[in-house]
């Protein structure tokens, strides 16, 4: 049984025999040309967004970071944006599990707008500018659906979708497993680092 050996290394057995070619990084546009990058790299390099505006991306980063610390640097906005640009059948977003009705970009845009409007009304500032402590009561009211005002998709659904996106990047990657000392034990190595 494998328990605490080198967490970021596959065990030297059948698992490694099943490695696939590492393809599947997201295609981002940097400097006018396409590049295959991870979401974190895309963020660092300022890759162009396909579906979200710069303001929406900044808001998604702020919300994702408030939900799961580390999500901003992990590239949540670019991760979500790249998946929104894919056909639904190729999307890797949890929204796919949550029966979010298409188009999914409208779901994210409407949810972000509702969150920002609620923040401006309740906290007197755009969500991206409020502190984690100040935002906490607002966010806490999302899962039970008691947040007001709210004009967007069901707040619990939007909360769960973005929280899951953030958790994917912060806790679901090979690097995250290694950080948490959880053995990854891939049968087939996933593309990129997740």
């Amino acid at each position: 049984m494998q328990t605490t050996q080198a967490f970021d290394e596959p065990a030297p057995d059948r698992r490694t025999l099943l490695k696939s070619a590492a393809f599947g990084l997201f295609a981002f546009t940097v400097g006018g040309g396409p590049m295959m990058l991870t979401p974190a790299e895309a963020r660092t390099r300022g890759a162009a967004l396909a579906k979200l505006s710069a303001d929406e991306a900044a808001l998604l980063e702020a919300f994702g970071e408030a939900l799961v610390p580390g999500a901003r640097a992990a590239g949540i906005a670019h991760f979500v944006d790249a998946n929104l640009a894919r056909p639904h059948s190729e999307s890797l977003l949890t929204a796919r599990y949550l029966d979010v009705l298409p188009p999914n970009d409208a779901f994210y845009k409407a949810g972000l707008a509702a969150l920002d409007a609620a923040s401006r009304t309740v906290l007197g500032a755009p969500f991206a500018q409020v502190s984690a402590a100040a935002a906490k009561p607002l966010i806490t009211a999302m899962l039970p659906g008691t947040i007001t005002p709210w004009q967007g998709p069901p707040p619990p659904l939007f909360y769960l979708a973005v929280r899951s996106d953030a958790a994917d990047l912060v806790y679901g990657t090979r690097a995250a497993f290694a950080r948490m000392q959880v053995p990854y034990m891939a049968h087939i190595e996933p593309p990129a680092d997740w």
Partner: peptide, 29 residues
Amino acid sequence: LYSSSIWARRLRWGGPVVESTGGHAFGAG
């Protein structure tokens, strides 16, 4: 079949989205 909870989502329903409603809406996706 990549070993990844994220990539596993490709294995779930990718056709026209199924609406789900009712007092205890079912997770079709």
